[in-house]
């Protein structure tokens, strides 16, 4: 029998299970902690820092930090949300994100976070990195311009698909997604129905020839901000 742990998030008492992360405990209690690299079907990673909360006054990533009795978590406060907004802005300037014609627009978690935080224009200078497209696979393509280095595809390919088709290469600003083949994604065992292809939060790893099939007005974030389904409990009913 699991051991219960009691903590507060923004002053509200919640109960979780020992060993849970703050993120999992919050989700179980219909509390939305904004996130990007976290995915419920994948192991915690903690790379994007969007889920950063103040835990007993110190910044910690909710997706990796385990809960403990008496823990006080600040999540939906002006201070914390401003911090997250800056992180999202940094993610925008580090890549080449052209929402206006991106086929992921309306279904993109990064774009949706920017809308939720009210990002109108980043406060940091655009880096305009030079990144490569790999469209050699018949059904899947990588647009590295849009990658936020969340590692969802790496984790899904390794842990769920059992293929380890993706990994990081390069360091610092040159870090990028690489594939386990010298000549491009075409020579990897990646298939269109792989979990790795389904979990990309942005428009970086995509199925070919599917763009724009969902009309404007029917896309995931067209009507409600990201996280609304969690806050209303709707995500549990799906």
């Amino acid at each position: 029998m699991s051991e219960n742990v009691t903590l507060t998030i923004d002053g509200k008492d919640i109960t979780g299970e020992k060993g849970q992360t703050i993120m999992d405990a919050a989700l179980a209690n219909d509390i939305y902690i904004p996130h990007l690299c976290h995915h419920p079907d994948l192991a915690p990673y903690g790379s994007c820092r969007v889920c950063t909360c103040l835990v007993n006054g110190r910044p910690q990533t909710a997706c990796t930090f385990p809960i403990s009795d008496g823990m006080e978590v600040e999540n939906d406060t002006d201070t914390v949300n401003e911090m997250r907004k800056q992180i999202v802005e940094m993610l925008f300037v580090e890549g080449n994100h052209y929402c206006m014609f991106c086929e992921k627009s309306g279904n993109c978690e990064l774009q949706a976070l920017a809308y939720r935080f009210g990002v109108t224009t980043p406060r940091y200078p655009y880096q305009f990195p030079k990144r490569e497209v790999d469209a050699s696979h018949p059904n899947v393509w990588i647009d590295r311009d849009r990658c936020v280095l969340c590692a969802r595809c790496i984790r899904a390919s390794k842990d769920v698909d059992g293929k380890h088709a993706f990994d990081f290469a390069g360091r610092g600003p040159n870090r990028h997604i690489s594939v386990d083949a010298a000549d491009g994604i075409e020579h990897t065992p990646v298939d269109a129905d792989d979990k790795a292809v389904q979990v990309c939060p942005v428009g970086s790893l995509m199925l070919k020839r599917q763009g724009y099939k969902i009309p404007i007005g029917q896309r995931k974030y067209d009507h409600e901000p990201i996280g609304t389904d969690i806050e209303t409990g709707a995500s549990k009913k799906q």
């Binding site: 014609f101 086929e103 497209v133 070919k208």
Partner: peptide
């Protein structure tokens, strides 16, 4: 150049 063809009708109208 280099963009996927299904993106063109949305991109080029800009």
């Amino acid at each position: 150049l280099g963009r996927p063809y299904w993106e063109v009708p949305v991109l080029v109208q800009r």
